[in-house]
Computed example of a mutant assay.
Amino acid sequence: MEERRRLGDAGRNKSMVDQLQRYGIFSSKRVAEVMEKVDRGLFVPDDTPPYIDSPMTIGYNATISAPHMHAMCLHLLQDHLLPGMHALDVGSGTGYLTACFSLMVGPEGRAVGVEHIPELASFSISNIKKSEAASYLEKGSLSIHVGDGRQGWPEFAPYDAIHVGAAAKEIPQQLIDQLKPGGRMVIPVGEIFQDLKVIDKNLDGTISVRNETAVRYVPLTSRDAQLRGR
């Protein structure tokens, strides 16, 4: 029974990915492959429908982004998620996107998740252990840390790719500093009205910024402010 359920979930996960491709959210074969391997159903709370294209609450006034946003961010970052590269996931939540990053950069690369809610960090580790990325966690090329993501995670910087899963009032300088020349960051910026910004650090250290699309994310804030719902 458990094996039939697992295979059924894999089929629904693949259908979700196929639908996102049909809708033109992304066209990358690499993104499709990694989203098919990392079953979103393993990364949402129980009794939550994982395969519909909608954000889901995960407790602690946090959400897991809708699948189309994950697909879009993976597509935007794919050239900076090649084997051997370093990737940082700020506000890693349930661990889904960090797991995707780890498969894309491979065991010779490094995928780092930073989450300031300890319970979510623990939840994400248990989710990853059930996923295709479990071996990367065991080997240490994937790691989840409890901390203020606005400060990044300097230990493994510089990063080729940085994803921020909550909306900043302004782009944190610490994250720009930890972005490798030639690297890219995807971050929602704004308060009531937000834009998903694509930030490229040029080889000379200068920054290029463009808006990708209008979005709506929970705010990138302190742990206490988040728990108060502010």
Rank of each mutant, 00 (worst) to 15 (best):
T94G: 01
T94F: 05
L97E: 06
T98Q: 07
A99T: 05
A99Q: 02
C100F: 04
S102R: 06
P107A: 00
G109S: 06
R110P: 00
R110E: 10
R110A: 13
A111L: 13
E115D: 00
E119A: 15
E119V: 10
E119M: 11
A121M: 03
F123K: 02
S124E: 10
S126E: 12
S126L: 10
N127K: 06
I128Q: 01
I128H: 01
S131Q: 11
S131W: 10
S131R: 06
A133P: 07
A133S: 03
A133L: 04
A134K: 15
A134L: 08
A134Y: 11
Y136G: 04
E138G: 09
E138N: 04
K139S: 14
S141I: 00
L142W: 02
L142Q: 03
S143A: 09
S143K: 06
S143V: 04
S143H: 01
I144F: 09
V146T: 03
G149S: 09
G149F: 15
G149D: 13
Q151T: 12
G152S: 14
G152Y: 14
G152E: 11
E155K: 15
A157Y: 03
A157L: 06
A157H: 05
P158Q: 02
Y159E: 14
D160I: 05
A161G: 12
A161L: 10
H163P: 10
V164W: 13
V164Y: 13
G165Y: 02
A167M: 07
K169P: 00
I171C: 08
I171F: 01
I171Y: 07
P172F: 06
Q174K: 15
I176M: 14
D177G: 01
D177C: 02
Q178W: 03
L179G: 07
L179I: 11
P181F: 11
P181K: 05
G183R: 05
M185G: 00
M185I: 11
M185C: 04
V186I: 14
V186Y: 01
I187M: 01
P188T: 09
V189S: 13
V189R: 10
G190C: 00
I192D: 09
D195N: 09
K197F: 00
V198W: 01
K201L: 06
N202P: 00
S208Q: 12
S208K: 14
S208W: 04
V209P: 11
E212T: 09
T213P: 11
T213Y: 08
T213Q: 03
R216M: 14
Y217Q: 01
Y217L: 07
V218Q: 00
V218C: 05
P219E: 13
L220F: 04
T221C: 15
T221H: 15
